[in-house]
Design a protein around this nucleic acid. Sequence first.
DNA 1: CTAGGATCCTGTCAGC
DNA 2: TGCTGACAGGATCCTA
Length: 313
Amino acid sequence: MPELPEVETIKRGLSKFCVQRKINRVEICCEKSFIGPKELVEGAEIIGLRRFGKALIIDLSNSISMMVHLRMTGQLIYRAKGKETGADILEVARKNKLGDKESFAGGHPTDSFFSELPNKQTRVIFEMEKGTLYFNDQRKFGFVKVLPTAEVMEDKFIKSLAPEPWQTKPEELQKVLQRRKNSPIKAVILDQKVIAGIGNIYADEALFYAKIHPKRLAGSLSLAETEKLVEGACKVMDASINSGGSTMATYVKADGTKGDYLEKFAKVFRNEGKPCPKCGAEIEKIRVAGRGTHICPMCQKMGACQKMEGKND
DNA sequence: CTAGGATCCTGTCAGC
DNA sequence: TGCTGACAGGATCCTA
């Protein structure tokens, strides 16, 4: 679930609490969620955090790194010593502060951000010098992987990542779209080897920004449309990062009630039935490439050619 | 090589 | 209330 802006927000949040702190002990609650020998991590100090697309790299002082991928439902939650239950975290969240001294939570938004830990979904526990870092993951698709720092860039996933939207050249992307010309454009931009960091939310938001129907075949996009799409991806991700991504600071509203960080910037995602902010037409939910997809049927029209083939929706 | 579908796993929610 | 199937903010593997 967490996409590039969420991982970036986590990187910034954890940098405040974990860098220059030692990991004393690692407790693995789910074998599947932790790949590699935990002994290489225990006793090492975190010296920095990096992000590549949706992957977070935690670099350690002993030339070892951990690669974290949250996939659909992963979360990283840090709590200072004595604050493990999360009882006082609601108060922190109410203040809407990202960089509180005591705690931080980001990733798939659930009540685990501020409820008692560890819980049923806790997969790995890192006992740190001054607090505890929990890796939670409901569906167990995510993982933490131990590898030598020197091999991070050789990792299969990292190595095959395309540039992120800000570094994407529309002309280059256009070539890939021609190669993948018979796939729906949404399926293509969800591929991390095509453009890094986009997931289901930002795919829908970027396509809405560019007024492109997600079922349009990739090969049918003009260069101008591709440019607009890249611009849209940059803008929606910038907006999300600036609003704090999906973290406890945005999960809980200022008045203490449960909110939804999507409210802050999502124009179409999970807004089916609501009016389009541009034209007022009703936003629809459809299915594209096996994923729930949200569009404004007025702003995002299919091309005339594809329509005649009966592939419109 | 591309395209499409199944698959990993747990929880929640709509519909009966 | 309980059961069932669909679906979920991801990526890979398998098949054609």
